[in-house]
Amino acid sequence: MANILAYAEARAGELRKTAFEAVTAARQLADASGGGEVHAIVFGPAGVAAKAAQLGKFGADVVIAVEHERYANNDPESMSATIAERAKSGGHRYVVGVASQTGRDIAPRVAAKLGAAFASDVIDAKVNGDALTVRHPGYWGKVIMTLEVTGSPTVLTYRPGAVTASENAKEARAESMAPAADPSASRVVVKETTQGAKGRPDLAEAPIIISGGRGLKEAANFKLVEDLADAFGNAAVGATRAVTDEGWRPHSDQIGQTGRTVSPQLYVAVGISGAIQHIAGMRTSKAIVAINKDKEAPIFKIADYGIVGDVFEVVPALTAAVKAAKNS
């Protein structure tokens, strides 16, 4: 039996999808180790406690809200100090998070503060006596490593999307906690958080991604990709490194080895040849569509549905057909 502390991520006072994944993962790990309580910890400005209560539905026994005006933005110094303090006083066997940008920033600090063993970005974790056996993709996703982690507590983060948030209704007890370190004394201060494109889901959360490559020839032609994304309605827009290097799209849209790793339900590659570095970032997508004029392009080796043709002809036709299918 092991109690688990789950870091449930919020941004600007709103719970993120990763918060539910972290609590679900913690619940599964608690059940696998013979049952134990899941304590979810959430940071935000005043009002986050009310929103955090819904984590009970995903298996949290206790929801700990840490409210402070500075938590409208990230504050990894005081957040990690507070998580570590709570794990210490609560005697938690595991501290669980999700390896989003924020989770990746906070979890290693917590591990270092606790002197804990640490596993990062795992796709699954199994309790194995006193040890934890985790699997974790490395070498740009081209190798799956199985690691044995010993020591209590252990801090681990799950790869975003590796665990599907699922309901497991509990009557969560609500607690509040003061920051263990004064947020106004943090040395790293967020001056500004700017939101990305409005009305479109982020690459990490989108069930559908439409991605463009050099085959689009120039920045303005990304409109084709945007239009197709709009036709699906719940799609994000991604790009290859060649495209972000050209400045056609921001660096943060880059999918591949040195960019984002995604696994949506559907990935549509528009004018993308399929360099090994790009494939490393999207090969775990459920279904892959490729549209490219070169039938020898490597993308067709992994595409479930390939169309050989001119993107300027095929993509508008597909956009129209998707719109028609949505309306029928």
Partner: peptide, 24 residues
């Protein structure tokens, strides 16, 4: 040292690609 490698393996291959047609 509390984290040790137990195994490395290649991920499962995707099914081979399929071209379903040409053009619009």
């Amino acid at each position: 040292v509390r984290v040790k490698i137990a195994k490395m393996e290649l991920p499962a291959d995707r099914p081979p690609g399929r071209i379903i047609g040409e053009g619009a």
